[in-house]
Measured scan of single mutants.
Amino acid sequence: MEVRTIKVFTTVDNINLHTQVVDMSMTYGQQFGPTYLDGADVTKIKPHNSHEGKTFYVLPNDDTLRVEAFEYYHTTDPSFLGRYMSALNHTKKWKYPQVNGLTSIKWADNNCYLATALLTLQQIELKFNPPALQDAYYRARAGEAANFCALILAYCNKTVGELGDVRETMSYLFQHANLDSCKRVLNVVCKTCGQQQTTLKGVEAVMYMGTLSYEQFKKGVQIPCTCGKQATKYLVQQESPFVMMSAPPAQYELKHGTFTCASEYTGNYQCGHYKHITSKETLYCIDGALLTKSSEYKGPITDVFYKENSYTTTIK
């Protein structure tokens, strides 16, 4: 009895394709271990004539594949690729409408935090270190965002349907971005203890939790000093293409032309909904596939993004 075979390709990165001759009487799992086709788990399936010449994702289970996976995804987590594939199996079914010149995501599976993050990423200057993220990001900007969303979920250790947080998501993504040249110098002034300067680099240099107003941050924000008295913390120097200011959701007025974009969060910790506000020729609110415009805006804002380049204080 002759062994019926077909020729397929296996890959971990969709760049390096490895030619395989597979036995049609055995499952993919018996031949390769966990195997995925377009995100779908085909591990328990036997090869079919229609699979001839198709590319299958496999887990990096030998040295060659491990090197290829690390170079593309910059992670050695053995569960990463499987999590990416199972997320992709959902995100490829989502709709990605162009809204006001940006790629958004039609609401499904509690994905409003991903839509808000995706919209924000198209408006701030950011370059990702893992080629996987950078490639998928370019495709997302062009309207094909399924891979990018699935990668975000995998890097953030999230599953489809789980509630997510924009600030946490951005923080994970910033860790995989090139923020080497970003720098922030802060000064804390206390009447009792004097003053202390701190220099922050990388992710810490672009994120701040405690106030939404970048102007206020430049002037000074009140913080408790270690001595128990009130101290003032203010920005001395900022070198970065953008800054992200966050605070627990509270009524906040966004003035046209003073910011790049913002995240609105309605609801409580267990259950809520994100919308995205962007400042173009007027203010726009993007909620999944829905767009509304207004000249002014007041609502429960939790993150505001500002364009920056270089700032030095005039406070002496």
Rank of each mutant, 00 (worst) to 15 (best):
T260H: 07
I301G: 00
Q122Y: 02
V21I: 13
A117E: 03
C193V: 02
C285T: 13
R4M: 13
L254E: 02
P300T: 14
L133V: 04
V221D: 03
G101V: 03
H48I: 15
L173Y: 02
G299H: 01
G299M: 03
S104E: 05
L81W: 08
K280I: 10
S240W: 00
L186T: 14
Q175M: 08
A40F: 13
L114P: 05
K106H: 12
K280T: 09
G39N: 08
D180F: 07
Q31F: 12
E215P: 03
Q30W: 09
G39R: 06
V221M: 10
K183N: 07
S294Y: 14
G161N: 09
V160N: 03
L254W: 05
K233Y: 06
Y57G: 06
E2A: 12
Y269W: 15
K106A: 15
V12R: 08
T302P: 00
L290N: 15
Q175S: 09
K219Y: 06
Q216N: 10
N309T: 15
C271P: 03
I105W: 03
F217M: 12
A115S: 09
I124Y: 03
M209Q: 15
Y297Q: 00
G194Y: 02
L118H: 03
G101C: 04
V206F: 02
V304E: 00
Q230H: 08
V188A: 06
A262M: 00
S213K: 03
T76R: 10
M209A: 15
A145C: 09
L254M: 05
T5W: 11
K255E: 14
T75C: 09
Q122W: 03
Q175N: 11
K255C: 11
K218Y: 02
H48T: 13
P130F: 03
Q197A: 07
Q122P: 03
K275N: 04
S294W: 11
P249T: 01
G33K: 03
P47E: 04
D165V: 01
T313M: 15
G53R: 13
E296Q: 13
K229E: 14
E264P: 02
D77W: 03
V12C: 09
D62L: 07
Q134C: 10
G272M: 01
V185R: 06
Q30H: 13
F56M: 11
N61R: 13
A289D: 14
D303G: 03
D180A: 09
K201L: 12
P47R: 04
S263Q: 03
Q238M: 00
D303V: 03
F32S: 07
K255L: 11
